[in-house]
């Protein structure tokens, strides 16, 4: 990997870390488009529990991993919301980069440039 690419990757990763670590705390807390559609037709009480009507969200089940330490983009045991959301975001970015980058690196085509690659592809 070239040095220039390394700098680009570091810069991009820094932007992602800032977005997930800092900006994420200021994201909208409203239900997203899908969730909104799923809740239409039902009435809710102050705790967000369904009190009547018919809607898709009625059949919604709990997540099998709802007790995981990072569930719902927070870190279990950290009460400060900004810290909890931000740290979970930072971990998420690093984990995604490690898993994604790792898997893509393992399955990549060996060899240097894209130009030589086309030739080898045609050979097989």
């Amino acid at each position: 990997m070239s040095k220039r690419l390394g700098w680009f990757l570091a810069g991009g990763l820094l932007v992602a870390l800032l977005l997930a670590g800092v900006v994420s705390s200021f994201a909208s807390g409203s239900p997203d488009g899908l969730d909104y559609t799923a809740r239409e037709g039902c009435t809710f009480n102050a705790d967000g529990e369904i009190t009547g009507g018919t809607c898709m969200a009625q059949q919604e089940g709990d997540h099998q991993l709802a007790d995981s330490p990072l569930a719902d983009y927070g870190i279990k045991g950290i009460d400060n919301e900004y810290l909890s959301t931000g740290l979970s975001g930072v971990l998420g970015v690093l984990i995604t980069f490690a898993i994604g980058g790792g898997v893509f690196w393992l399955v990549r085509r060996r060899g240097q440039s894209a130009a030589t690659a086309t030739d080898t592809d045609q050979g097989r």
């Binding site: 970015v93 980069f97 980058g101 893509f104 690196w105 240097q112 894209a114």
Partner: peptide
């Protein structure tokens, strides 16, 4: 290739 693989990791992390 050697260039797209790390870039793809970054794209995944950015989308997350």
């Amino acid at each position: 290739d050697d260039r797209l693989a790390p870039m793809a990791g970054l794209v995944a992390a950015f989308i997350f």
